[in-house]
Amino acid sequence: MQHPKFILARFSSIGDIVMAAPVVQALRAHYGDEAQIDFITLNKFKGATELIAGINSIYTVEKSTVEVTPQLKENGYDYLIDLHSNVRSRSLARSLNILTFKINKLGAARLSLVLGIRKRPVDHFIDRSLKLLSPFSISECTDNPWGEIAFSKPEMELPKKYLALAPGATHIGKRLPESSIDAICSNSDLPIVIVGGSDDTDLAKRFEDRYPSKVISAAGVCSLKETAHIMKYAQVAVGGDTGAMHIATAVGTALVSVWGCTRPSLGLYPWRTNPKSIILQPEGRDNRPCSRHGARCRYKKLGKHLCIKDVTPERITSAISSIL
């Protein structure tokens, strides 16, 4: 087979889709421009997929893969690389009826970590994804494993040097406390550009108003490509276990990642990150995650504060200073 046709499936979310980039890069490096490498995701995450170089076509669905199945069948794919292994991707595999390579989500192992049964960290999601390519004798692309992440310059004027801050998250156990954000803003010698989605707009605006000569809010007004630009040209990026963390990693920026109710042991830590990057975990609490997605904190049930508050503002500002 000279010119294979691949369809990759990952339906959510931003960080998980960005982590598909090394798979696309490895396929493209092995087969060159002749291979067809397409991607299917949810409509609302198309922007994340557009960050990945080397994809020929992106297909999106609102709910079900049935929406695009006829078109995908016409394309005559040879292989499905299933990076999600959920109801949608399994439905797609049945419909296309082609050779499928499915990610091992290690659900039982990750749950065992949360329950405290397992101590050993699970393999990183990207390493597990790349193993799917072993039947093709393809390994990680060592020269540039992330590929060229797409970015575009925002319309807003950015300082020549700045710190990129991504304080928000979908789940409360991953959000930076306001006390930590305030410490970062008050101690930074660099201007700060706050990035995030529309849910982070009010928070970013409060700190922009509090530090008008230092903080610029880009939350809710920048596309993901513009956010990637902000991350790429920052002197340092700071954030929790979120999609912004993976974008910063992919563009090679030194990163301070602040961990709360999730832990790096779940296999979603910054992969092949800038060597200056620093991971901060809660002090005084073990490495056992409270939940797989950061939605629950087991210490909160005991009347204590969220895990992420045990990464003190002083530790965060010290880590930033050590990188700069």
Rank of each mutant, 00 (worst) to 15 (best):
Q2T: 15
H3Q: 15
R10N: 12
F11Y: 11
M19L: 13
M19N: 13
A20C: 15
Y31D: 11
A35N: 08
Q36M: 09
D38T: 06
N43C: 08
N43V: 07
K44D: 10
F45A: 05
F45P: 03
A48E: 02
I55P: 06
K63Q: 13
L72S: 12
L72D: 10
K73H: 09
G76F: 09
D78Y: 09
D82W: 08
S85V: 06
V87H: 11
R90A: 13
L92I: 13
R94E: 10
S95C: 12
S95K: 15
L96S: 07
T100G: 02
F101C: 05
K102F: 03
I103K: 01
I103T: 03
N104V: 01
L106E: 13
G107C: 02
A109T: 00
L111P: 00
S112G: 14
S112Q: 14
S112T: 04
L113N: 01
L115K: 14
P121L: 04
P121H: 05
V122L: 06
K131S: 13
L132V: 14
L133P: 08
S134D: 12
T142S: 12
N144A: 11
W146D: 03
G147E: 06
A150T: 11
A150M: 14
K160A: 10
K161T: 09
Y162F: 15
L163A: 06
A166Q: 07
A166L: 11
A169E: 00
R175M: 04
P177T: 06
E178D: 14
S179Y: 01
S180A: 15
D182E: 15
S188F: 10
L190R: 03
P191N: 11
P191E: 11
I192C: 05
V193T: 08
G197R: 03
D200I: 09
D202C: 00
L203R: 10
F207T: 08
R210T: 13
S213I: 02
I216K: 12
A218H: 00
G220K: 01
V221N: 05
V221W: 01
K225Y: 00
E226N: 04
E226V: 05
E226K: 03
T227G: 09
A228N: 00
H229A: 10
M231Q: 12
K232Y: 00
Y233N: 14
A237L: 05
V238F: 07
G240V: 02
G240Q: 00
G240H: 05
T242P: 01
M245G: 05
A248K: 06
T249K: 07
A250H: 11
T253V: 15
V256N: 05
V258H: 04
V258E: 04
W259C: 05
C261V: 06
P264F: 12
S265Y: 13
S265I: 13
L266T: 12
G267A: 13
L268D: 03
P270D: 06
I279R: 04
E283I: 02
E283Y: 04
E283D: 13
N287T: 10
P289S: 08
C290Q: 04
R292L: 15
G294Q: 02
G294N: 01
A295R: 06
H305L: 03
T312C: 04
A319S: 14
I320R: 02
S321V: 08
